[in-house]
């Protein structure tokens, strides 16, 4: 269980080096994305107006305030449940070169194949820890598709973003699956006898 400091955007080799159970802190830039953003890219076939190449994508719907000069100030930026966006994993990594998907609760197990094949990881954030995460976002540098507010495409500059846990790695391993399998085994083997 190693700790890694990564600067994003990054390359395939950097995420392939991560193992399930490792922790990660991110420097550089991350991209905010959510259901509506991905529906526009993949179901409506629109080219994203910002490059996702090498990117770390965060499942989020930020609460922001618009400043007089048109820029946005973060009020509370947290993370949403990822499972319902699982189907976008393959095209995000294969066609757009994204390297990390960040959210809470995990992607569905079928995302493990694409993560392994095309070189990507799922990093679990501490869900609900928005107060902390908001302070780790130094600046909202770019906002595209403002009509989808708050599900726009966001580019954040971050400092010490994390901790994140490598929950699904590029080697086919998912901590969620391991934990679920172990919990089911415990229920069947010991706990069901106690109830």
């Amino acid at each position: 269980m190693a700790h890694h400091e990564l600067t994003f955007p990054t390359d395939e080799a950097a995420v392939r080096a991560l193992e399930a159970g490792d922790t990660v802190t991110i420097q550089g830039h991350i991209i905010g994305i959510r259901d509506a953003t991905q529906i526009r890219i993949f179901d409506q076939g629109r080219e994203p107006p910002m490059s996702l190449e090498g990117g770390a994508l965060l499942h989020t719907a930020p609460n922001v305030r618009k400043l007089a000069d048109g820029r946005y100030e973060p009020l509370s930026i947290g993370t949403t449940t990822s499972a319902r966006m699982s189907r976008f994993t393959e095209p995000l990594i294969r066609d757009h070169g994204a390297r990390a998907i960040m959210g809470k609760g995990g992607l569905l197990p079928e995302a493990l194949g694409p993560l392994q094949e095309h070189g990507g990881v799922y990093l679990a954030i501490v869900g609900g820890a928005a107060a902390l995460q908001t302070t780790q976002i130094v600046e909202i540098e770019q906002v595209e598709w403002e009509d989808l507010m708050p599900e726009c495409l966001w580019r954040f500059r971050v400092c010490d973003f994390g901790p994140l846990i490598v929950a699904m790695d590029a080697h086919g391993r998912s901590l969620y699956e391991d934990v679920q399998a172990e919990a089911r085994r415990r229920i069947d083997e010991t706990l069901s006898a106690k109830i």
């Binding site: 501490v126 846990i165 919990a183 415990r186 229920i187």
Partner: peptide, 8 residues
């Protein structure tokens, strides 16, 4: 059950 914080 061992599910643990954040299910990890």
């Amino acid at each position: 059950t061992g599910v643990g914080p954040m299910g990890l």
